[in-house]
């Protein structure tokens, strides 16, 4: 899109969107949200970025987000699979603080990565037909 106002405003709004998404992912065990909702917000933020800025990129650079998304899907999946191999969770701290449940925070981050990259890759595969 060639809209100046959208681009200038978006540069600042994107920062808030990303921070909010990461906040929801990390506090998944303390407030509603967790991996899925936070991952969706992160994914939508990056999606908006590519909608507004991304269509002028050269053809070779366009495959890049898809490849990164694939790698992150792999990472997210492996992190989530590893969760089941540990006997119970990792180290447990005081309830109510940020790092109180050992492996579940890492799993939330993995799920967030996975959902965000899934949304991006679906968008890319649908748009790429042209």
């Amino acid at each position: 899109m060639d809209d100046y106002i959208t681009r200038i405003v978006f540069r600042y709004v994107l920062l808030f969107i990303l921070v909010y998404g990461i906040y929801i992912v990390l506090h998944g065990h303390l407030s509603p949200g967790g991996g899925f909702a936070g991952g969706m917000i992160l994914g939508m933020g990056m999606l908006l970025y590519f909608l507004i800025f991304g269509f002028e990129w050269k053809a070779k650079l366009r495959r890049l987000p898809l490849d990164v998304a694939i790698v992150f899907i792999g990472l997210g999946g492996i992190i989530e699979a590893v969760k089941f191999m540990l006997p119970k969770h990792g180290p447990i701290g005081a309830p109510g603080t940020l790092f109180s449940v050992g492996i579940i925070s890492v799993v939330n981050i993995g799920i967030g990565l996975l959902v965000a990259s899934t949304i991006l890759s679906i968008f890319y595969l649908l748009v790429e037909e042209e």
């Binding site: 792999g74 699979a81 191999m85």
Partner: peptide
């Protein structure tokens, strides 16, 4: 559980090879 985990791990790293 290992039964399914092996296949799921292979399934997750397969897109890297597919690409």
């Amino acid at each position: 559980f290992l039964l399914i985990l092996v296949i799921l791990l292979a399934c997750f790293i397969m897109p890297l090879f597919a690409r």
